[in-house]
Amino acid sequence: MQRYFTNELIAENNTLTVLGEDAHHMIQVMRMIPGDEVYVVVDAVTYTMTIVEGSSKSVLLQVKDKQDQTNEMPVKVSIVCGLPKGDKLELITQKATELGMHTLYPFEAKRSIVKWDKQKNEKKIARLQKIAKEAAEQSHRSMIPHIHTAISIKELLDISNSYHVRFVADEEDAKLEERQRFSDLLKKVNGVESILIVFGPEGGLDRHEIKALHENGFQSISLGPRILRTETAPLYALSAISYEYE
């Protein structure tokens, strides 16, 4: 069944009106008619609703029932990605949303070749937020991950203080013979409410960045003996967390 997210509120008579792109998608793309049912997520709660009437601009829905089950991870996992080249951040956004990511922070790392000015920042974030919404609908999430504006190392350190556990993926750690397994670290922190993981861009994180993160409570993690691409590493980590906790 098709799923939609909305900021509209359910009226006292248990109806809800969907507007704009979602209304167009229901009527023009999915060819839905009165009597068809959809899932609609309102304030992180999923409802089954029936179409009463609609056009490509507005669809009136009637609440049928509320779904008690949630598909969210038991821990809020936020990802920090050094700005990568090309459309890699779009891939990360889409797949990480499917895997349960809570928030994405694009990071202006020292080795990031890509630089975002204010205008590009706004356009990129809007594009990524739309990708996250579509991926959340497809994967039947109960919330849409928040895509933050690009942050500096100082802003990253400030943001990290609100997280219970902080990891940094360090490719140098992967080269060590006695590296600590990521799964072992996850077992030690089982039950925490939030995890923040930092990944570098192509070329990895600068050693001064690693040092600053360590000094602010970050722990290095190894994602196995192989060096992963910048777009692969976050997906590996999210998959490992899902396997361990879900």
Rank of each mutant, 00 (worst) to 15 (best):
E134I: 12
K118Y: 02
V165N: 11
F5K: 09
V189G: 04
S78K: 00
V63Y: 01
F167E: 08
A233F: 02
S78L: 08
D36N: 07
K76F: 11
L99D: 05
A237T: 02
Y4K: 08
I147Y: 10
P106H: 09
A135W: 15
N216F: 03
E98S: 14
N7K: 09
A240G: 02
F5Y: 10
V80M: 07
N121Y: 05
P225W: 01
V198T: 06
Q62D: 00
S222Q: 09
R181L: 13
K175T: 13
L16I: 12
I151N: 11
P201E: 06
G217R: 08
A109P: 05
D170K: 07
G224K: 09
V41A: 04
E202C: 11
L186M: 09
R179H: 15
F107T: 09
M49C: 09
Q2G: 12
Q219C: 10
P34M: 14
E215F: 10
N190H: 10
S183R: 10
L156R: 09
D65H: 03
Y4L: 08
K188G: 11
D173T: 14
N121I: 13
L9W: 11
T50C: 03
E215V: 05
G20I: 03
R141N: 14
D117S: 12
G82M: 14
A233N: 01
E37D: 03
L61Y: 05
K130N: 15
D170Q: 13
K88N: 09
L186N: 04
G100D: 07
E137P: 06
P201K: 05
V52P: 01
P225G: 06
I153N: 13
Y39D: 05
V75P: 02
F107D: 05
Q28I: 14
T17K: 04
S183L: 11
E209P: 00
E90F: 05
S222D: 11
S112A: 13
D206I: 12
E202H: 06
V165R: 08
T232V: 00
E134C: 11
T50Q: 06
K133Y: 03
L83R: 05
T46K: 02
Q180F: 10
E21S: 10
E12F: 03
L213E: 01
D184E: 12
T46E: 03
G204Y: 13
